[in-house]
């Protein structure tokens, strides 16, 4: 966790404000990264489950009876349709996972930028204080 390493009392109020701004941004970005990590975990689990179902559907004879539980009703499905629906789900989830991965890479770049800003501001402030 980044903390002030200089005597804040000796520092300009303006600098203090800039640092605070950067710290707030860092916290915000870290929260976003955290959120995405949690979402990815959920998506991974969904991807797993759907893949298991896809594999199971492959084991079935074409005349097999497949049902989908929608609300309280077990509705009969056509095997082909069920396979199609599950495949589409898998595609959608995979795309979402990729999107989150890109998002996190982006956020981490932002995080580093802010961390660099903090270093710069601190360095400048220390130089001035001397």
């Amino acid at each position: 966790k980044l903390g002030p390493y200089i005597n804040m009392g000796a520092v300009d109020a303006q600098v203090r404000l800039e640092l605070q701004k950067e710290f707030d941004e860092i916290q915000k970005v870290q929260k976003e990264i955290q959120k995405s990590a949690e979402l990815q975990k959920k998506l991974d689990s969904q991807l797993n489950q759907n893949t298991v179902v896809k594999d199971e559907l492959e084991f079935l004879e074409p005349e097999s009876n497949v049902y989908k539980l929608t609300g309280p009703v077990l509705v009969k499905q056509d095997l082909g349709e069920a396979k199609g629906t599950v495949s589409k789900r898998i595609e959608y989830i995979s795309a979402e996972i990729k999107r989150q991965e890109t998002l996190v890479a982006d956020l981490e770049k932002q995080l580093n930028k802010h961390k660099e800003s903090v270093s710069k501001i601190q360095a400048k402030a220390t130089a001035v204080a001397h």
């Binding site: 049902y67 989908k68 539980l69 929608t70 609300g71 309280p72 009703v73 077990l74 509705v75 009969k76």
Partner: peptide
């Protein structure tokens, strides 16, 4: 959604619909 799906059922499948 269940209501909609029910409408798509074949006649033969509409006789014995499992309800939880």
């Amino acid at each position: 959604d269940a209501g909609d799906d029910l409408l798509l059922l074949e006649d033969e499948d509409s006789e014995a619909i499992p309800y939880q």
